[in-house]
């Protein structure tokens, strides 16, 4: 009888996640489109010296928007609907709510992200032209690229969750997420050469999903994955800090 704990709250968030039909549909449809884009990019690969693995994973440009926006809504829809009052009545130890959301949403998008990445690769290989060299998962760097791409989708999802916890309004939080992913690299790239190494959207295409080195991305993909993970870590920490201090 020591009171409710993380397990209870994680179960609550798991029920919330799987009982919204819109979330289930958007995730399923988003995965299919992501895989389809990769298959098309794989089929269109003609360069003999290129990086077909990276091409087959091109769908994450779209997939990251899906997981990112759903991450935002996981938090902001609590405020727009008023559900947050019920949630905090059941779980007034507020940080638990955010950590449980992060654990459940992170785990679900990690699993779905990996399925998406490996499906993109598997189906992409099937349609790859015979003139193009065929990469294989038995090659460590190919396996690494596919697996990191799946993880990237989860990390963007958690970034969205962190932004949602800080901003609380759906439209503003989605705008910040999309602006941060796609506009910031352009601005930062114009301001400082080498800024791309710190921009998740560029890291994904040029380091995580790449098997062959891309100029300007000389750091190890593992370091780049760490940099990408820093965004959700900092945003979630800030979101948790604010959640405790602000009136709900």
């Amino acid at each position: 009888m020591s009171g409710y704990g993380f397990r209870d709250v994680a179960r609550m968030e798991w029920i919330k996640l799987r009982t919204l039909r819109s979330t289930t549909w958007v995730l399923a449809a988003g995965m299919c489109v992501t895989v389809a884009l990769g298959v098309v990019a794989g089929y269109n690969t003609r360069s003999v010296t290129g990086d077909p693995t990276s091409n087959m994973l091109a769908g994450i440009a779209f997939g990251q928007v899906i997981t990112g926006v759903l991450g935002v809504l996981t938090m902001t829809s609590e405020y727009s609907s008023g559900l947050i009052r019920s949630t905090l009545a059941a779980v007034p130890r507020r940080p638990l709510v955010l950590w449980a959301k992060a654990a459940v949403f992170g785990a679900v998008t990690m699993v779905l992200g990996e399925i998406t990445a490996f499906a993109s690769f598997g189906l992409g290989i099937a349609v790859l032209r015979s003139s193009v060299p065929h990469p294989a998962l038995s090659d460590g760097s190919v396996l690494r690229a596919v697996a990191m791409t799946g993880a990237y989708l989860a990390l963007v999802g958690l970034t969205g969750l962190g932004i949602g916890a800080i901003v609380r309004h759906s439209a503003a939080a989605v705008a910040l997420l999309v602006g941060g992913l796609f506009v910031l690299p352009v601005v930062a790239g114009a301001a400082a050469v080498g800024a791309g190494k710190f921009m998740p959207e560029l890291i994904a295409g040029n380091s995580l999903a790449a098997v062959k080195p891309v100029s300007g991305f000389s750091w190890s993909p593992w370091l780049e994955l760490g940099i990408t993970a820093l965004y959700p870590a900092v945003l979630l920490a800030a979101g948790g800090w604010l959640l405790v201090r602000r009136d709900a």
Partner: peptide, 25 residues
């Protein structure tokens, strides 16, 4: 029961209550 509604419109009543029950042990 405080002002206005405190549930997500897309979730069924049973799922809403099941989630809260889980969180509250």
């Amino acid at each position: 029961v405080l002002e206005a509604w405190a549930f997500h419109p897309g979730r069924s009543a049973r799922s809403h209550l099941a989630a809260l029950a889980a969180g509250g042990g």
